[in-house]
Design a protein around this nucleic acid. Structure first.
Lengths: 185, 185, 185, 185
DNA sequence: AATGAATGAGACTTCATTCAT
DNA sequence: AATGAATGAAGTCTCATTCAT
């Protein structure tokens, strides 16, 4: 069902190579040449498949957001009650802050872009929105919003700290924020 | 106190111009040429005063960290009791997330660098450490740590959200995190 | 009369788009892509209908010459006597130098090509020949030749001058050149 | 007295190479690479000495205009009376139309640019102005203007014609245009 | 101590053309 | 007969860095 007559996955390979390169070297060192080499495609392909570097980056981060949202979904859609939800949130924080350097770095790069360009802010907003939808199944909206921010802060501080805090402290913070937050019902 | 015999403030002008340029265009688009033009110094003096772009960036972010730590100091050193401390933290969150686009963007750029390079992580760690020192004057260490992470998350979410949450919610979250946290004594 | 089974006017659309593009941006900036976009045809059809850029340009300027010769014909075939002819020549000079920027620019581009390549010189020679045929109906051959050159010079100088000369001067010049030139009989 | 510490004539060499290349291949085929190769300078020099291709072309045609104005000066400043002036104009027409292909081609390229861009029109206007100043020493202003246009037309038609007209016809045309034009006194 | 001149490397992008369909 | 996909070549331009002064 490929639409072209050759290598229909080329676009995807380019996008994956783009994210890999950003994770490894940072947006500041990304170039068409390096991406093409990584993806194993001719340099000329780059601007054939994507109208320019901007397009390419935006689409690549769209793919990344899809991935990270899937991680949130995986952790936050399963819990059946608030107690399980708290544990899931703790798991999420620790997975995000201990897991692949890749996701951590890409998240920061995305936030940096979002801080300056509205186009990227849409991606982060959709991600926050999705996260809150999950949390609101177990907590009232205000609590969900506070908890969402807490997840962000705990994850980042764990990731950057010299001696990351343990799971106990993570759970304690989550418990405090959600202590009074009964589901809206 | 001048080290050279001409224009001793040249280094500082270059560093300030560097931060301004990063705030405006992002690290990816920084160049010696643009910085020199902004600072009003000859291109040749760039590599004379700084051994290379890396040195320059690291020193510039050092200056930025000094500035942001001063902001934390200003807000967090004044409060006389936990209640005032909570209000000060709320003020801090709102100032950071509503204030200059410049500080927000530079913070994200720094985090992005820190996520990848230990040299920059030292800067962020010093900043966190300093923040916790302030908070521990009013709250026990674990609470201080949780509150510090919450500040981070609330600030970032407010800065990037489509409809940033109000001060009431900020205060509510702070109150919950610090409810049981009596000072260690 | 269609040669292909689809859209027989496609060749003409391409040629018209080519001239439009040359008029707008100059031969130096012409490309298959831009022409195809302007003509609303697929890029692939460019090299299908025309063997290459050279072919395309030569044929396009052939169309342009047809058009400009038609303008000459319209003005120079009507007059019934030398006096009317002089007025018609003045009209022609002013129409060419005041009319569409398009014709002016294309004429210059053609002359530039003709100055270097014989293939294009044939086009301009045919045009001059045709012009002289008209003029020789009312003036002797030498006068026709001089008048033809004068038309060229007056048109160009009017087109490029900061303050173009008026119709009176145009008529005066024509009168002087044709004063002694009786028709050959 | 060179201002730089190396090869101060490099700019001039580049400008000369630019005009040579335009004369040989046309503006459409000019490139930094080819000019650099012709001038024997590194490619990187091109945008160091000239801010871009536009700058380079404009300055190169400025040099060309200087040259062509010098030719006009040489022919038109010498004559002592109208009769000598008529002969000088005829000489000029024949030199321009028979002389170097280079000048002819460059003149056409310049006119093409002037037809589209005001910046180049200034160059041609200065040239026309200078020409008329010379002619007005021997003929009244209206006659000078007509004669100037005639020079243009005769030169171009001689250059492009299959069988260029002879000197007799050139002189005849000049005589007719200037017959009644007494100096303004 | 300080800098203008210079350049090789590499950035992004456009392009004419080829080819499988 | 016609075209979307693809690419190698070349385009302009920016840059960090070196070096003579």
């Amino acid at each position: 069902m490929a639409t072209g007559h050759t290598d229909p996955q080329r676009r995807e390979r380019i996008l994956a190579a783009t994210l890999d390169l950003i994770a490894d070297e940072g947006i500041a060192r990304v170039s068409h040449r390096k991406i093409a080499a990584r993806a194993g495609v001719p340099l000329g392909s780059m601007t054939y498949h994507f109208s320019g570097m901007d397009d390419l980056l935006r689409e690549a981060f769209g793919r990344f957001t899809d991935h990270i949202v899937a991680v949130f979904d995986a952790y936050l859609s399963a819990p059946a009650d608030p107690e399980q939800a708290r544990a899931a949130v703790a798991d999420l924080v620790h997975v995000l802050s201990e897991g692949s350097q890749r996701d951590l770095v890409l998240t920061q790069e995305l936030y940096t872009l979002a801080a300056r360009q509205p186009a990227y802010r849409e991606l982060t907003q959709e991600w926050m929105r999705r996260s809150r939808v999950h949390l609101e199944k177990h907590f009232d909206p205000d609590t969900a919003r506070q908890l969402d921010a807490l997840i962000e802060g705990l994850t980042l501080h764990r990731a950057l700290a010299q001696e990351p805090h343990g799971r106990t402290l993570t759970l304690e913070a989550i418990a405090r924020i959600t202590a009074t937050g009964a589901p809206a019902r």
